[in-house]
Amino acid sequence: MSDEKTDAAPGSAPEGSGGEAAKPAGKGRLIAIVAGAVIVSLLAGGGGVYWFTQRGTGHAAAEPAEAPAEEADGGGENADADPSAAYIEVPPMMVNLRGGGAQAKFVKLRFIVVAADGKTDAVKARLPLILDALQPFLRELRPDDLNGSAAVFRIKEEMLRRSTEALGKGMVRDVLIQDLIQQ
């Protein structure tokens, strides 16, 4: 008789139990799996919240937090927050891109210059200086320089830097890119 009990499969219940011994082990395993899934979900959710809040406390989120204080003083670097900002639309520019291929590549660029308070007429009068400062930069771009999500940001920052150098500090507040088309 003892041979019959040892011949049973390791996961099966003894003949007289009717399968009752397997149920508590299955329930315990199910509870452990559900608890593990809940813990993993909570950790992933908490990690996601932490990641997004830490990204928000960086340099980009610090600027909007400071903007209301600057507006109260009458100043501020944020062109969108200032209703008196002057937007000067620049005629579209089309330049050749630098490349080694037989086919010529072009970029068409439309942008707006945001003049500082009270400097609108001065910036309009000196707009050719801005265009002259931007031509060498735009002509040195390669088609690869325009790839990726950060390309427009890098181009915008360089355009703002060159515009500020051409006109002097405090003349141009921002450069807003409307269209950047490569063909």
Rank of each mutant, 00 (worst) to 15 (best):
I155L: 15
D121M: 08
E158I: 04
D144Q: 15
F137P: 00
Q103N: 08
L131G: 12
V152K: 14
L167H: 00
D117S: 13
A79T: 04
L160G: 05
Y87L: 12
R110F: 06
Y87T: 07
E165R: 10
P91I: 00
P128A: 04
L141P: 11
E158K: 15
G101T: 10
P91C: 00
S84M: 08
A115C: 03
M159G: 06
A133D: 04
R98V: 04
E165H: 05
F106Y: 15
A150N: 13
V107F: 04
K108C: 06
S163K: 07
V172Q: 00
T120M: 13
R154A: 14
V90K: 03
D145W: 06
T164I: 13
A79S: 14
A151R: 03
R110K: 10
M171I: 08
S163E: 08
M159H: 04
M93A: 09
P143K: 07
P136G: 05
T120F: 10
L129Q: 08
D80N: 11
R154L: 11
L134S: 06
E158L: 09
R142F: 11
L167D: 00
D82W: 02
V172L: 03
K124Y: 07
R110M: 13
G170R: 01
L131E: 09
F111K: 00
D121F: 10
E140Y: 06
D82Y: 02
L141V: 10
I130M: 02
V114A: 05
F111M: 02
T164M: 10
L109D: 00
A102P: 02
A166R: 04
R154K: 15
R161A: 15
G170S: 06
P92N: 04
F106V: 08
P92L: 01
R154D: 15
A125M: 12
F153T: 13
S163L: 09
L97C: 09
D117L: 13
A86K: 03
A115H: 01
E157N: 14
A151V: 02
R173G: 09
S84H: 07
G100Y: 10
A86L: 09
P128R: 03
K124M: 14
K156L: 07
E165G: 03
S149K: 12
P91F: 07
L146A: 07
K169A: 15
F106S: 08
R161F: 13
V172T: 07
G100V: 01
D117T: 10
I155N: 02
K156C: 09
M94H: 06
E89T: 11
A85W: 02
K124V: 11
E140A: 15
G148D: 08
L97I: 03
A122D: 11
K169R: 13
D80F: 14
A86G: 07
I88W: 02
A116Y: 01
S149N: 12
M93E: 02
P143Q: 10
P143G: 11
R162Q: 15
N96L: 14
K105D: 15
A81I: 07
A104H: 10
R173P: 04
G118P: 01
G148V: 03
L127P: 01
D132Y: 12
R161M: 13
A85T: 09
P128K: 05
P83S: 06
F111G: 00
R126V: 05
L129Y: 03
A81D: 12
L109H: 00
P136E: 05
N147I: 10
P143S: 12
G100S: 12
I88D: 01
E158Y: 05
P92W: 02
M159S: 08
P83K: 03
L141R: 13
E140V: 04
A133E: 05
